[in-house]
């Protein structure tokens, strides 16, 4: 039940946004999102609400952790 999926914002209209992922388009609400997304941002969507707007550096950090762990380096 805690399923949430990343979707790309294609339109923002006040407290609502249209988002898109894998051929599916949806209208979602921004009442509880941590940071207002802009068009082109990725948001994590759960039960009709965005719960997180992904900053590009956060995606980079996920990749950095992957490479670090896959190579067996770091703390």
């Amino acid at each position: 039940m805690c399923l949430a999926v990343p979707m790309k914002v294609v339109e923002v209209d006040g407290n609502r946004a249209r988002v898109h992922a894998g051929g599916i388009e949806k209208e979602i609400y921004l009442d509880i999102v941590d940071r207002e997304p802009g068009v082109g941002d990725y948001v994590i969507v759960h039960a009709g609400f965005a719960i997180h707007t992904m900053a590009p550096q956060e995606a980079e950090e996920s990749l950095r952790l992957f490479h670090q762990m896959a190579e067996g380096v770091g703390d």
């Binding site: 949430a4 990343p6 509880i32 941590d34 997180h52 950090e61 996920s62 952790l65």
Partner: peptide, 18 residues
């Protein structure tokens, strides 16, 4: 935190406030 693209250390303060 191995899921930094969705999770921060402090969390989503706006959601917690509501």
């Amino acid at each position: 935190n191995m899921y930094p693209r969705a999770v921060t250390y402090g969390g989503n303060s706006r959601a917690m406030e509501i």
